[in-house]
Design a protein around this nucleic acid. Structure first.
Length: 258
DNA sequence: ATAGGCCTGGAC
DNA sequence: GTCCAGGCCTAT
């Protein structure tokens, strides 16, 4: 998905539907998920109650009342769908969580790259995340310090969850466009003004996307992402696409010229 | 830094 | 068929 705003929206819905409910059964429908949790541990989830749900970067932590944690990550395509235990499985259903009140949450994920893991109480591994992109306490100054230690281009750096957690390929391009920064700029050559503009642009882009669901995709307003050849919204120059670290970058070669 | 792998679907 | 895809890990 699913970048920070979409994961945040998913977490909120999941929280509303699941907290306080008791799990009757979790079913893993796809081999890629079955490989991650043994059948015995999976069966042992029955009877646990969902205590809390939180987002860290793009990870979702589903806390059970006994301290165990279901750790979910949507990767490219995942989302939660809601229904009842008797429903027909949706296309691309990869896992179901059935509750004792017969409600059901289904993990749908067409590419099956998403993950769900179960961690025993107190055993959650380090997720390797830097400051959360949506955190108000994450400052331009902190961002500047991190960037000063890097020599590579800024755009791939924004995808590094250790630099800042939650940005993905879409909003990285969007934020750079908004801040008028060339995606090829070496991190350690950005000026203090550019770093400040970038921090503000990230906040603005995430705020605009707030509440977005992955499946509502077409309704999201984007300025450059997936707009190759389309006139830049600021200067009318056609948007250009090129690859950085194997991922598409979109930018305006005129107003992001530096 | 970059390529390949994980998976599968959709656009061409 | 071929290419591309909002993520991330591992190997080179």
């Amino acid at each position: 998905m699913p970048e920070l705003p979409e994961v945040e929206a998913a977490v909120r819905r999941f929280r509303r539907k699941a907290v306080g409910r008791t799990i009757a059964k979790v079913t893993l429908l796809h081999p890629s998920l079955q490989r991650r949790i043994t059948p015995a541990r999976l069966r042992a989830i029955a009877g646990a109650t969902i205590a809390a749900v939180e987002r860290r970067g793009k990870h979702q932590l589903i806390h059970l009342d006994d301290g165990r944690i279901l750790l979910a990550h949507f990767r490219m395509n995942g989302d939660w769908e809601y229904g009842n235990a008797g429903d027909d499985l949706q296309r691309f259903a990869r896992a179901t969580i059935d509750f004792t009140d017969d409600s059901r949450i289904t993990f749908v994920d067409s590419r099956a790259l998403g993950t769900i893991e179960l961690h025993a109480a107190g055993t959650l591994p380090d997720l390797g995340l830097g400051p959360d992109a949506a955190s108000a306490s994450w400052t331009a100054r902190q961002l500047g310090t991190s960037l000063a230690a890097r020599k590579g281009p800024i755009k791939p750096a924004l995808l590094d969850q250790k630099l800042v957690a939650g940005l993905g390929n879409i909003y990285a391009s969007e934020a750079l466009w908004r801040a008028k920064i060339n995606p090829r700029t070496p991190c350690n050559t950005l000026t203090a003004k550019q770093v400040s503009d970038l921090r503000k642009a990230i906040a603005a882009v995430l705020k605009r996307a707030k509440g977005t669901r992955y499946t509502d995709d077409s309704t999201v307003h984007l300025d450059v992402y997936d707009r190759e050849g389309v006139p830049c919204r600021r200067c009318k120059t056609p948007v250009v696409r090129f690859a950085q670290a194997g991922r598409s970058t979109y930018w305006c070669p005129v107003c992001q010229r530096n």
